[in-house]
Design a binder for these strands. Structure first.
Lengths: 223, 223
DNA sequence: CCCTTGTGTAAGCACACGCTTACAACGCTA
DNA sequence: TAGCGTTGTAAGCGTGTGCTTACACAAGGG
């Protein structure tokens, strides 16, 4: 399917420093590890955990597959490491009332940003691997508690998880089911609809009536 | 893991007509086919397509695995047939304005009803198998057009698909991620929240303010 | 009776997978 | 130079998979 990019020319790699870190060292374990991680992310995202093979990942990374086991121990451990990449960073660096919209826009962002890739890994691997559901649960818990905290309602956690479920579902429809018109709809349009609807669930989120484009109004408190 | 029910006593099967069709025929191809189909549904739902094995399904159905290939040709064809079971029936037999709530309640229904099983098959197999996304897309199209028809809005299809995405996401959270409290929340409570929120998206759906239980109000037109 | 057709079974083929092993090339210090 | 730990490689082991083959019964027709 995909052409054979990344066929690294053994040692003496040319000049093209591709991560902004120590360009052109011939036997660099850190670089190799990172390369494997990146390749694994792409392959897991494109095919799901079960369908992805260690040989594929090794080939894409341009390394021998034995290295994968030296560096990560097992295929499952590799998946875990791929999914654990930052992730919870966003929760702690984004103000809670913007968390949902930020995440939504991340889901809606086009074309293999690292973030969309990670979501695809979740979605495509979620059915198997049992590492995936666990990670989704853990990450989801962080998002949910952050969102629940700012809704004063008694069932705030439920409400927050319902919102997250919508996020996941939208990602599923766009990334793996690819159903039109949702798959290629304008992020702004989707965002407006979702935020408007969620106004009933989590009243503190920004975003009022549908069709307004980016939500910027209603910046402050709730009654 | 699961106890070995279904260890059919070869020929001379006892009396218990279990499908309401031609009880107790010793070598009944139709019955065997149906048994395989049922077993496949259960195994695919519990483990996802890739992780499920033909041997598992055969054992659960109490038949030789070679029969599976005689009757269905391949594992993938079996998946397709399992997912194609009725499905679109619901769309044509349910009045559009109740379609969403009916589907939602199906998703929320506890414990392996055939419907929840089929949803689990979708969700757990959606990442791989590429038969699954296709079927979800096809089925989703039917739901979406039915829902879109009753919303007069120009972007009715988008709105309908967003609603379906929520459905899928809620199913994912409950069935495969199993995140609490959503996983074991009261169907009525979830339903009320979702319908209330969707009132902004698809105004013709029943269901107004949250916390009311089943919605019955606002039966008619939109402005 | 044999022959054919439909249903069920035991055994195994070919292959791709995750993972391991034995070894070579390199960079470094002495 | 030799010694040593690190990084990379080629080859293959064991296993489980989807799927096939060759055969055993049952029933009907000549």
């Amino acid at each position: 399917m995909d052409g054979g990019e990344y066929t690294r020319d053994q040692h003496r790699s040319a000049g093209g420093a591709l991560e902004g870190e120590s360009p052109q060292r011939p036997r660099d374990a850190r670089e190799t590890r990172a390369r494997i991680l990146r390749a694994a992310g792409a392959v897991f995202a494109g095919r799901g955990y079960e369908a992805a093979t260690v040989r594929d990942i090794a080939a894409r990374a341009g390394v021998n597959q034995a290295l994968i086991f030296r560096y990560f121990g097992s295929k499952k451990a590799l998946l875990t490491e791929v999914m654990a990449q930052d992730g919870k960073e966003q929760v702690s660096t984004t103000p809670p009332e913007l968390l949902f919209e930020t995440a939504l826009r991340g889901v809606l962002a086009e074309g293999g940003g690292a973030e969309a890739d990670r979501l695809a890994v979740y979605l495509r691997s979620i059915g198997s691997a049992d590492a995936a559901p666990e990670t989704v649960r853990a990450l989801g818990e962080e998002y949910a508690t952050a969102l629940a905290a700012l809704s004063g309602a008694e069932d705030g956690t439920l409400r927050a998880q319902l919102a997250m479920a919508w996020l996941l579902g939208i990602g599923l429809m766009r990334v793996v089911v690819r159903q039109e018109p949702l798959a290629t709809a304008e992020p702004d349009a989707v965002c407006a609809h979702v935020l408007a609807a969620l106004d009933r669930l989590l009243p503190v989120l920004p975003g009022g009536e549908p069709g307004r484009g980016t939500g910027q109004e209603r910046p402050g408190g709730r009654p």
